[in-house]
């Protein structure tokens, strides 16, 4: 197979163009959001949030059929209900926020699975779980582009507020910043992007497109802004590679993209010059040798 056959020929198909476009567009916003998830230690919460979207999607499907808008609104409502519900639970009861979130999302996910098993057509819903480029419609691409554009714009305009709220929320508050608003806005953006990533990535794997590039970038960067840029770059390259792999190997697109991101992540975790495992291990060995060779 020539390089042309491998890299260019697949995109002669319209569905491949759409899949590539939506993955690329979501890489921009996903790479940014992932950095905040990682730095604020919300990675597991993001995972919970993505699972909780299922009942919203299933219910919308049951009521309105496969309409992009209905699925989008359904998922959005489910995600916001989980976020608000767990926030309320942790305020009103003794239950702490992580336990509240964990409980809420698993109940939602259970309800989602129950609804899916009642649906007339099961096949299409597995696409929502694991992603399917074939299913990306033109309106899905438009939705992804709008959501991603809004996310990037918000990051550009409120860059400093986002940095402060992530690094030092107490200081942000002390200078009159509105931390609650930033936090809620961030949750809403995360839900929006998860929903927009449904078709390409599937809800179970969508978070991978946000999280993995950010963790990888975290292992390389000592500047917040550079971390954002690198994260977006990793997401872009990996999602293009993932789409190609999925085409040639006949894999689900979400899985292929996450696997490509996984390679970058494991590589970073091992080989990052300052924060990687190999560097730390070598340093540990050097220190031990130093102790053994010292005069006492």
């Amino acid at each position: 197979m020539s390089l042309h056959d491998f890299l260019v020929a697949p995109f002669a198909y319209e569905f491949m163009q759409r899949g590539l476009l939506s993955a690329a567009v979501l890489s921009l916003s996903g790479g940014l959001l992932g950095c905040i998830l990682v730095l604020r230690r919300l990675a597991l919460m993001g995972d919970a949030l993505s699972h909780s979207l299922l009942p919203g999607i299933a219910l919308a499907w049951l009521l309105f059929g496969p309409s992009t808008t209905a699925l989008f609104v359904g998922a959005l409502v489910a995600g916001l209900l989980t976020a608000l519900g767990s926030a309320l639970l942790s305020r009103l009861t003794r239950v702490k926020e992580d336990a509240a979130f964990g409980s809420m999302f698993i109940v939602f996910f259970g309800a989602g699975v129950a609804l899916v098993s009642k649906l007339p057509t099961r096949l299409n819903l597995t696409h929502f779980l694991f992603g399917n480029v074939l299913g990306v419609s033109a309106s899905d691409v438009r939705l992804a582009a709008v959501v991603s554009g809004v996310t990037v714009l918000i990051f550009a305009v409120f860059y400093r507020a986002i940095l402060l709220e992530t690094f030092d929320p107490v200081f942000h508050r002390a200078i009159g910043g509105r931390g609650g608003l930033v936090h809620f806005g961030f949750l809403a953006l995360t839900v929006l992007n998860l929903v927009a990533a449904l078709q390409t990535m599937g809800i179970v794997l969508a978070l991978g497109l946000f999280l993995l590039p950010a963790v990888s970038a975290y292992l390389w960067c000592d500047h917040f802004f550079r971390m954002l840029l690198l994260s977006v770059a990793i997401a872009l390259v990996s999602s293009v590679a993932g789409i190609l792999v999925s085409y040639h190997a006949g894999l689900a697109s979400g899985a292929a993209i996450v696997l490509c991101l996984g390679v970058v992540f494991v590589g970073s975790a091992l080989f990052s010059p300052n924060y990687g495992a190999l560097y730390r291990f070598r340093q540990y060995l050097r220190e031990r040798r130093g102790v053994r060779n010292s005069p006492n």
Binding site: L39, L163, L164, T166, F167, D168, Y218, H223, R226, M227
Partner: peptide, 12 residues
């Protein structure tokens, strides 16, 4: 461990 330098914090 936040990816920020001394100057970055003071600039805040």
């Amino acid at each position: 461990d936040f990816p920020i330098t001394v100057r970055g914090v003071v600039e805040q």
